[in-house]
């Protein structure tokens, strides 16, 4: 049981829900950028939520299934073809051996997640399969996927039997009629709303810059990757320049660089940083950010710690209800 990477595309890598417990040695959490989409992909195809998935950034990726399999695709950012027929996200798909999945350019979105029923047979390194390419940890040989990589599949038992209800047609595959929920939030006039809580250094910015931060539109720059998303927009300044000692940072933290521009730390973020931390993104909204591409526009909304926690809780409840619905 295996799949072959015919083309890695712009960037694709093996991820799970992250490498927790090693930040004290400077090792980032990593894991799926859009955590909710990765969880959903696993749930839809009957895997445990923590199972490894393939994260496909934008497009160009082509994957061949060397055996018959059941899969699901979540997230956004590609128009996906299976055996040259367009298929939709958020379904359960059953396919024959030799099927080929192609990720082609789409007008919006950024990251797709492929989960395969039974899971990927990838060795954990430091408790996780997540690829952190800069240090060569996780994935296959510590690297992002390359042309010709073969990934073995596991045969863990599916948590639901929905695959029995669909039959493969002459196209070599079958798609469920039911749809897993689309977790992407509605955009307002093309502007993405990102909920934030104020950060540890919020008070070091005066009223003028705080309101600038909260009331201005920022756009995603070209410097956006798994480590962080640099924004473009109004510049922010500290009331008084203060030499900061390195402080803890993690995914979701928004730092303001010396140039006065916010940078949002993402999955592969460093564990410490020296810039003022103006805010932190509500964990549930990191998934929205993971789906942003350069030039996408966003605004920040200040919510309470409690609202932030509620939001994530609500998303997890939605996922749980989907899982229960599929199992029963």
């Amino acid at each position: 049981m295996s799949i072959t990477i015919l083309k890695p595309g712009i960037s694709s890598s093996i991820q799970d829900l992250g490498r927790w417990g090693h930040q004290q040695f400077g090792i980032p959490i990593s894991g799926a950028m859009d955590e909710l989409a990765a969880r959903l992909a696993n749930i839809l195809c009957g895997n445990d939520e923590h199972e490894s998935v393939i994260e496909i950034t934008l497009h160009g990726t082509e994957i061949m299934f060397n055996e018959a399999a059941c899969i699901s695709l979540t997230g956004s950012g590609s128009i996906i073809y299976l055996n040259d027929i367009e298929i939709q996200y958020n379904r359960l798909i059953k396919l024959d051996a030799s099927s080929i999945l192609k990720f082609k350019p789409a007008p919006s979105g950024c990251r797709s997640y492929l989960a395969i029923q039974g899971g990927l047979d990838v060795k954990k390194e430091m408790d996780s399969t997540s690829t952190f390419a800069p240090s060569g940890i996780g994935g296959i040989n510590g690297q992002n996927l390359k042309m010709g990589d073969i990934i073995s599949l596991s045969r863990k038992k599916s948590l639901h039997k929905k695959a029995d209800e669909i039959n493969i047609t002459k196209n070599g595959f079958a798609v469920s009629t039911w749809i897993g929920v689309d977790l992407k939030e509605q955009q307002h006039n093309g502007i993405i709303r990102i909920n934030i809580c104020t950060g540890p250094e919020w008070d070091l910015f005066n009223e003028q810059f705080r309101s600038k931060f909260l009331n201005s539109e920022y756009s995603i720059s070209l410097m956006a990757n798994r480590m962080g998303i640099q924004l473009e927009g109004p510049r922010l300044e500290l009331t008084e320049k203060k030499e900061m000692v390195s402080t803890p940072v993690t995914k979701g933290i928004i730092q303001v660089t010396n140039e006065g521009l916010p940078i949002i730390l993402m999955a592969d973020a460093q564990t410490t940083g020296g810039y003022p931390r103006i805010a932190r993104v509500c964990s549930a909204d990191l998934s929205q950010l993971a789906q942003c591409r350069p030039s996408d526009r966003l605004i920040f909304l200040n919510i309470s710690e409690n609202e932030s926690l509620q939001k994530m809780r609500k998303m997890k409840e939605i996922l749980k209800s989907i899982e229960i619905g599929l199992v029963n």
Partner: peptide, 8 residues
């Protein structure tokens, strides 16, 4: 402290 990159 450790930080910046793994092992620093």
């Amino acid at each position: 402290m450790m930080g910046f990159i793994p092992g620093f």
